[in-house]
Amino acid sequence: MHKGHYRHKAFVSLIAIALFILAGCVGNGPRAVDESYLHVRAEEARARGIEAFSKGDFSSALHNFGSALKIDRAVDDRDAEVVDLINIARVSIYIGDMPGAESYLDTAIKVSLDANNVKSLGEAYATLAKVEYLTGRHSLALTHVEESIEVDKKHGIQSGAALNLMGVILAEAGKVKEAHHVLLRALQLNTDNSNSLERANSFRSLGHLNDLMKKHDRAMEQYKMAYELDTEAGNSEKIAVDLSSMAAIHRKLGHLTKAAYLLERSYIVNLNGGRPLKAIDDLTLLIETYSRLEMPDKVHYFARIKDSLVTAYENGME
C-alpha cells in the first residue's frame, strides 16, 4: 500500500518535471540574447560591411566591420568578434595592408581557440595562409592552409576555397601533380556547393596548372569556363585576367590574330575597370603581337594609345 503510494507520487513528479522541460522546449520566443538590441546592431553593421565590400567600397566596409567589432567586444560575443576580425583582415588584404591583416588574424585565431569557435578557426587559418602566400612565405602558407583543412575536416566541414589555395601553393612549389589533384577536389566541392566564385577560381587555377604542364587545349577550356563564370558574376578584374591568360596561350601556339583580339578585349576591360597599368601591359603585348603579324598600321595605332595612356597615368590618372 505504501509502496504504491510512493510510486504514484514519483510518477506524478516525473510527469510534472517532463511537462516543465517540454514547456521550455515548446516556448516559441527566441532566446533573450537573440533579441538584444546590441546584437542586432552588430549584425546590421556586419551586413552593411559585406554590402560595401561587394560594391568595392573597402573603406566603408572596414568602418562597418570595425563598428560591429566594437559592439561584439562590448557584449563579449566572442564568436561574432572572430568573424569581425576575419572580415577586417580579408578587406585589409584587398587594400594591400598585409601586416594589418596578419595582426587581425593572429587575434582572431587566439580568440577562436579560447571560444572554441571551430568554423571560424578554419577560416582564420585559411586567410592567414593567403596573406603568407601573397607575401612570399609559401612554406608557412602551406602549413596554415593544411591546418585550416585539418580543423575543418575534424568537424565535418570542407572548404573549397582552402583547397583552391592549397592547390595554388602546391603548384607554386612545383608539386604539379599534387596541386592538380587538390584543385580537382576543390572544383568538385565548389560545384557541389554551387559556389560559383570559387568554382571559377578552381577553373582558373587548373588552367594555369595545365598551361604549366603544356596541356594548352585543356588550359584553354578551363580558362574559358572561368571566363564564363566570371562574366556571369560581372567581375571585371577576373574577366581581364581570363582574357589575357587565353591570349598568352594563343601567342605561345602562334595564333596571333586570336591573341590580338583577346588582348584588345583585355585592354578595354582593364581600362574601363580603372586598372590603367594592366591596360598598358595589355597594350604592350598587343603592339608586339601586331608587329609579329606585320601590321604596322595597328602597331602605330595602339602605340599612340599606349603613349597617351602612359602620359595620362604619369600625370596622375588613377
Partner: peptide, 21 residues
C-alpha cells in the same frame, strides 16, 4: 547560415601574365 564572412576568394591576378612565354 547568414553570409557573415567576406569571401576568401582565392584569386591571384599574376596568373594573367602567362606561363613560360
Amino acid at each position: 547560415e547568414k553570409p557573415h564572412l567576406v569571401p576568401l576568394d582565392i584569386f591571384f591576378p599574376q596568373y594573367g601574365a602567362g606561363v613560360g612565354e
